[in-house]
């Protein structure tokens, strides 16, 4: 069973976001990797998150081994943050659409940070840091969605399957 994301959550997921994916390895160690793109399925019941294979080796291995997945997305200018979890993720194909999505998400993230005064040369720096040439796509159907915006209400469940 999965939850259906709201229209607002879907719109938020398409905004300029800082994205991180977490998993737990077979040895019990939690691991995390910055994601560089997210695509919401038309029915809003599944997501595809894009990672660099080389940067996210531990997370990808953990997910391949059956770990649950968590995706945390945050908008830097407002700190509005969502956390979406599922008990599993599967590999999906990557192609031109995923590469374009990743490039778009990284550029939007850089643009957002630039507006916050993080300095010039950010677009090039982030593009070099998060290239689109070794993308791995991970598809999952969120089972629980949390409001993770910093504050005493962080962790409030917004939707549960």
């Amino acid at each position: 069973m999965s939850v259906q994301l709201t229209v607002e959550q879907t719109a938020f997921l398409q905004g300029p976001l800082s994205m991180n994916v977490g998993a737990v390895g077979r040895d019990g160690w939690p691991c995390v990797c910055r994601a560089q793109g997210v695509m919401v399925a038309r029915d809003r019941q599944a997501l595809t998150v894009l990672l660099s294979a080389s940067r996210g080796r531990a997370v990808i291995d953990a997910l391949d081994a059956g770990s649950g997945i968590t995706l945390v997305v945050s908008r830097p200018s407002t700190h509005a943050t969502l956390q979406l979890k599922a008990s599993a993720a599967t590999r999906a194909t990557t192609g031109a659409a995923q590469r374009a999505c990743s490039a778009r998400c990284v550029a939007a993230f850089a643009d957002e940070l630039k507006g916050l005064g993080y300095g010039a040369g950010l677009e090039q720096a982030l593009a070099a840091l998060l290239p689109t040439d070794d993308l791995v796509a991970l598809r999952f159907a969120p089972e629980i969605v949390f409001d993770q915006t910093p504050g005493p209400d962080a962790g409030r469940v917004l939707a549960h399957a």
Binding site: V21, P30, G68, Q83, K85
Partner: peptide, 19 residues
């Protein structure tokens, strides 16, 4: 200067990531 993220695991192996 740039927020860090922390990944942890619940006892049942469910991952969590937070700023």
């Amino acid at each position: 200067a740039i927020p860090a993220v922390v990944a942890t695991s619940a006892l049942d192996g469910t991952p969590n990531v937070a700023y």
